[in-house]
């Protein structure tokens, strides 16, 4: 099976460590992954902001860049949710590991207290369910803690964070308080768009570190 990695523009620029972790996890379980260098962005931001034609163009581009692959792994729930209707061969990382490869223990070690925030697009639109949590639960040394009000949105919503900055900030404050209250040292999630927002709020106000769950799966002793 020819497997491509779509790292997403946000990760390419701001969170290359998430991309490196995905490559590490995939290679660890024996998948030879490729990274087509012509990839850019899926078009989600344009699609969600009312630029249908521009988003359509980027969706088409994605199809051309990843035409030769049977599976495209994407470490972002919201990008997969945006891509899937047009490109059914895209998989969020946990879907690829559990549904395609049938693997739950990817050999990671991470001796820390971790809570998981299920980001909305991954949870509701993709129906990831507890897949990322199952992968985390198999990580060596991890202590998983529940997150109160986990299913509640963090208030990011793409351009919502700028267009409705007040409401977004109020939602963020509640989410950060819940994360701090969990007692964890790390909060993991499956979407680095939300992570930019939550992580930025946590470094501002103090609290656990926000990481993509792939970085925990890639933890080595």
């Amino acid at each position: 099976m020819r497997v491509g990695l779509f790292v997403t523009c946000v990760n390419d620029l701001l969170f290359p460590r998430t991309g490196r972790a995905v490559v590490s996890v995939l290679e660890h379980v024996g998948v030879k992954v490729e990274f087509p260098l012509d990839q850019t962005c899926c078009g989600q931001m344009h699609g969600n902001s009312g630029y249908r034609k521009k988003a359509g163009g980027l969706l088409d581009r994605f199809g051309e860049v990843f035409a030769g692959y049977e599976a495209v792994v994407v470490p972002s729930g919201s990008c997969v949710a945006f891509l899937r209707e047009r490109h059914p061969h895209v998989y969020e990382l946990s879907e690829f590991l559990i549904d395609v490869l049938g693997v739950e223990d990817v050999g990671g070690v991470f001796p820390h207290r971790v809570t998981y925030h299920p980001t909305c697009h991954g949870m509701r639109m993709l129906g990831l369910g507890d897949k990322p949590v199952r992968l985390l639960a198999a990580v060596g040394g991890i202590e998983l803690l529940p997150l109160p009000g986990a299913a509640e949105c963090c208030g990011f919503g793409g351009t919502f964070a700028l267009k409705n900055a007040g409401v977004s900030a109020a939602m963020l404050a509640d989410k950060c308080a819940a994360i701090r209250g969990s007692g964890a040292d790390y909060v993991a999630m499956a979407d680095n768009s939300c992570l930019t927002h939550i992580g930025g709020g946590l470094t501002r106000t103090g609290g656990p570190r926000a990481v993509h769950y792939a970085e925990i799966l890639a933890g080595r002793p």
Binding site: V7, L14, P16, R20, L37, L172, R204
Partner: peptide, 14 residues
């Protein structure tokens, strides 16, 4: 106003 901007790392993913 309420969040820090993430600092870029040494190199992009690509």
């Amino acid at each position: 106003a309420v969040r820090d901007l993430p600092r870029p790392e040494q190199e992009t993913f690509r």
